[in-house]
Design a protein around this nucleic acid. Structure first.
Length: 862
RNA sequence: GGGUGGUUAGCUCAGUGGUAGAGCGCCUCGUUUACACCGAGGAUGUCGGGGGUUCGAAACCCUCACCGCCCA
């Protein structure tokens, strides 16, 4: 054990993640490293955590999201920024209400049994007991958020902000109430916004129905036959020759015997079906618009729970699905079914919370007029004040903000921010802002606001808006938003709109960094039904948080999905173990960080080489991380650590560390590990902290300085020397292997030729098990200008050696031919850049001499 | 139907004009005092098909096929 280790600590022989991770997270939180200071003079770096649902548990997507955010915030902190990473949760209106309703249901009760006030109290109670499990799970990951600033979308400050914003938007004319077709969930009994509806291709039916008789008959097709009970027109394209003569006439709707008009509308696609469509303005968005254009009546035929009502037919009281069948049967009995296609695969909307089929429904709701806000949000990206990474995802963003419908924000729920609108006895409407109160006797709108209305304010309400708080001044706008592309429209666009509105046109973030989804090892979506869900907690227990984080970061190419398999997490754990063992070995050999680095020029080639590689790695990794190229950065650091440092530097230096002349190398190795741990810390915070503190005696990497590349330590000459050493080692190993020599078997040999190589022969001898003694060479290898004569104690395996040489010869001949063809190509010689021509010439010379060498060796084998 | 991404080694994916790469898996050898969660060596690709641009194409253009995602 070296006396140089200044702190007297040793590393355990085996790396066990569980033993180091939990105490370290506690150490960081206790030290207050993650608590941001609004009074700091440092440049701010802000990230707001996309708030998970209060009902949520940590899934692999959160793990990825948080790994990337933690990685950025840790790096920026090390770079000297005042970092705020603000955590919190979303009250998740429908989801949370459903959870508590389900609980009540198991006791045979409904929310109506409790009444509104008691039910909401019950939800708060649930939150206190069971909500927010995800926050504890975040700690397990090492996510360095500022817990002192944790927020909840329903807490007092945010609720206050929600009311302020509502009033401000109402006063500006951006919020209005109107009767529209909205998405209605007949199970949740509430309106939903477009984004809360998920479309899937379902097997339905397409039924063609004949309306009217004889020459004036017209055939329409529908997937929802029951809606014909509410038809108030048939529409055709105004230029459609087949129907032109019918426009303006009327036709009778079967079963209800109502006469409706045939209208001409540009919206109708003459090529679809028969070119004639039935129009049900109360139950279809497009039909509603046609109805508006032609002043059609709207007839509501379904109640809130999706049952037929008010048609004065036998269908009244039937559920929509039953009614559909019954209506078709009745029509068939009348001989009006012209064609039926079953199954007919078409897109059907489902409630994103309970999967019930959505019913378009005419009802009075509150809306946000999005046009001006969406325009401003689009402009912010178009004019470059907000950047989207990767740029390739910009079109998706524009597709949305440029074609946005008004946003339905009222929900017929109890859990959420109640709409601050009060109605007077004579139908007066007033918005009651914070600190204000409604006149006595007025009643408040019963609905609550869409959850996204409050989470859309996450970037500024969490910092104290509408007060001009110190946090808001210091940390707004946020630096980067890290989130999956799947909620670009759900949340990101809403954040843009709300923030630009509330913060006088200043967008909520400078950069939107979008990552993809985590999928299973075959690229399939994870789902409970497939049984391919990877639980991050389970795998952190098994392999450590660092291993999970490294795997996720390494797989994170900008904007694209990644596949994940347990084996790969195991691979990352192996990497952590490698780092542990390498550091332990280094410390056993006296690696340390005391005093200045020896003068660069005084170092041997191997030390200069590893420093050179270190500085190249630092420079490149930094630039990759700054451009959100997590995968490439991880890949780069991984190969530097494992290949350059462990496989080559440590192996080539073992002789040095066993010699008296080791002082410089001990300091160099300490420095390389010190810098490597800093570089890896954002991705693998636990193991790097443990190793770095043990090696250097420092307090914490969290507050240590980020490495800066030193160009003066990049040494191409040393890299060339080591490349030659590597070539010699690899080729001799290959020769030994082909000759069937055991790895441990020592053989006599000598080196001559290339002075750089020969001067490191003691290291080579040790690596290649070549001993010095008098002998008669039975094999001679020529590698990198070096002659290596070996004694294989008698005869060598000629067949194996011939095979090896012939393989090398074939490769060399192929390369030679490629080079010759190029150099013989006039076009190439005339147009290719000089450096490429030079390179090919060198390649030709090299392959030619290789061929001579191998040919001679083959001849000598006989 | 509109938009958009993809098709590279057995699997999952990097690679935006100059001799095809990684991880995992596979085969062979190995109890060398950091590490078997390891080391050494090895096999495996007409880079989806066709056409074009170029001295040169996995990469750029056109086209076809197939897969995916978002939206309607």
């Amino acid at each position: 054990m070296s006396s140089q280790a200044s702190h007297g600590r040793e590393l355990a022989a085996a790396f066990i993640p569980a033993e180091i991770e939990a105490p370290l997270d506690q150490k960081w939180v206790d030290a207050g490293y993650f608590t941001a200071d609004a009074a700091s003079t440092k440049e701010p770096f802000t990230i707001v955590l996309p708030p998970p649902n209060v009902t949520g548990v940590l899934h692999i997507g959160h793990a990825l999201d948080q790994t990337l955010q933690d990685c950025l915030s840790r790096m920026k902190r090390m770079k000297g920024f005042e970092v705020l990473w603000l955590p919190g949760m979303d009250h998740a209106g429908i989801a949370t209400q459903n959870v508590v309703e389900k609980q009540l249901g198991s006791q045979g009760k409904s929310r109506h049994d409790l009444g509104r006030e008691a039910f909401v109290a019950k939800v708060w109670e649930w939150k206190a007991e069971s909500g927010g499990a995800i926050l504890d799970q975040m700690k397990r990951m090492g996510s360095g958020v500022d817990w002192t600033r944790e927020r909840f979308t329903m807490d007092e400050g945010m609720s206050n902000a929600v009311v302020s914003i509502f009033k401000k938007m109402y006063d500006t004319g951006l919020i209005y109430r109107a009767e529209r077709i909205i998405n209605w969930c007949p199970r949740c009994l509430t309106a939903l916004s477009d984004i809360e509806v998920e479309h899937s291709d379902d097997a339905g039916e397409l039924v063609s129905i004949r309306y009217g008789e004889g020459d004036s008959a017209i055939i329409v097709a529908t997937t929802r036959a029951e809606t014909m009970l509410g038809d108030t027109a048939v529409a055709v394209h105004p230029e459609d020759e087949r129907y032109k003569h019918l426009i303006g006439s009327t036709v009778e709707v079967p079963l209800v015997n109502r006469h409706i008009s045939i209208v001409g509308d540009e919206h109708v696609d003459p090529a679809f079906g028969t070119g004639a469509v039935k129009v049900t303005p109360a139950h279809d968005v497009n039909d509603f618009e046609i109805g508006q254009r032609h002043n059609l009546a709207t007839i509501v035929i379904l109640d809130a729970e999706g049952r037929v009502i008010g048609t004065n037919t036998a269908f009244d009281g039937m559920d929509r699905a039953d009614a559909r069948k019954a209506v078709v049967e009745a029509l068939r009995a009348e001989g009006r079914i012209v064609a039926e296609k079953r199954p007919y695969i078409h897109a059907v909307g489902h409630c994103s919370r309970c999967d019930t089929t959505i019913e378009p429904r005419l009802s009075k709701q509150w809306f946000v007029k999005v046009a001006p806000l969406a325009q401003a949000s689009a402009d912010a990206v178009r004019n470059g004040s907000v950047k989207i990474e990767p740029v390739a995802l910009e079109p998706r963003y524009f597709e949305w903000v440029d074609n946005m419908h008004d946003w339905c924000i009222s929900r017929q729920l109890w859990w959420g921010h109640r709409i601050p609108v009060w109605y007077g006895p004579a139908g007066e409407v007033v918005v009651v802002g914070p600190g204000e109160s409604a006149p006595a006797g007025w009643t408040q709108d019963p609905d609550v606001l869409d959850t996204w209305f409050s989470s859309g304010q996450w970037a500024f309400s969490t910092m104290g808006w509408p007060d001009k708080s110190a946090d808001l001044v210091k940390f707004y706008p946020t630096s980067v938003l890290v989130t999956g592309y799947d909620i670009l429209f759900f949340w990101v666009v809403r954040m843009m709109m709300m923030s630009i509105f509330a913060m006088d046109g200043v967008p909520p973030f400078k950069t939107i960094m979008l990552h993809g989804l985590v999928r299973d090892q075959f690229g399939k979506k994870m789902s409970k039904s497939r049984g391919n869900v990877i639980d991050p907690i389970e795998f952190m227990d098994k392999y450590g948080a660092d291993a999970l984080r490294f795997t996720l970061a390494r797989g994170a190419n900008p904007g694209t999905d990644q596949a994940l398999a347990e084996d790969w997490i195991g691979g990352s754990r192996n990497f952590a173990t490698k780092l542990w063992n390498a550091t332990r070995f280094a410390m056993m050999n006296g690696a340390h960080v005391n005093g200045d680095l020896p003068a660069f020029d005084s170092l041997n080639d191997i030390d200069r080489w590893i420093l050179s590689r270190l500085n190249e790695t630092v420079a490149e990794a930094d630039s990759l991380l700054e451009s959100y190229e997590f995968s490439r950065a991880c890949e780069l650091i991984y190969h530097f650590a494992w290949d350059d440092l462990c496989d080559w530097y440590l192996e080539l230096s073992k002789e040095t560390f066993a010699s008296a002349d080791k002082a410089s190398s001990q300091r160099v190795l300490g420095h390389v590990l010190d810098q490597l741990m800093r570089l890896l810390h954002p991705v693998m915070p636990f193991i790097t902290e443990e190793l770095w503190c043990t090696l250097t005696g420092g307090e914490s990497l969290v507050t240590a300085q980020w490495p800066v590349a030193d160009k003066s330590q990049v040494d191409k000459q040393a890299e060339k020397v080591v490349a030659s050493l590597q070539e010699v080692v690899t080729e001799v190993r290959r020769f030994r292997n082909d000759q069937g020599l055991k790895p441990s078997q020592k053989i006599p040999g000598r080196f001559s030729g290339n002075k750089d190589v020969v001067s490191y022969q003691s290291a080579l001898r040790s690596l290649l098990k070549i001993e010095t003694s008098d002998f008669t060479p039975s094999a001679t290898l020529e590698i990198a200008g070096t002659t290596i004569e070996l004694d294989l104690t008698g005869s060598i395996d000629v067949v194996a050696e011939r095979a090896r040489l012939e393989k090398d010869l074939a490769t060399a001949q192929k390369d030679q031919k490629t080079a010759e063809v190029k150099l013989g190509n006039e076009g190439f010689m005339a147009k290719a850049p000089t450096e490429v021509v030079v390179e090919i010439r060198e390649r030709l010379a090299k392959t030619t001499s290789e061929i001579e060498r191998i040919t001679a060796a083959l001849a000598a084998l006989k």
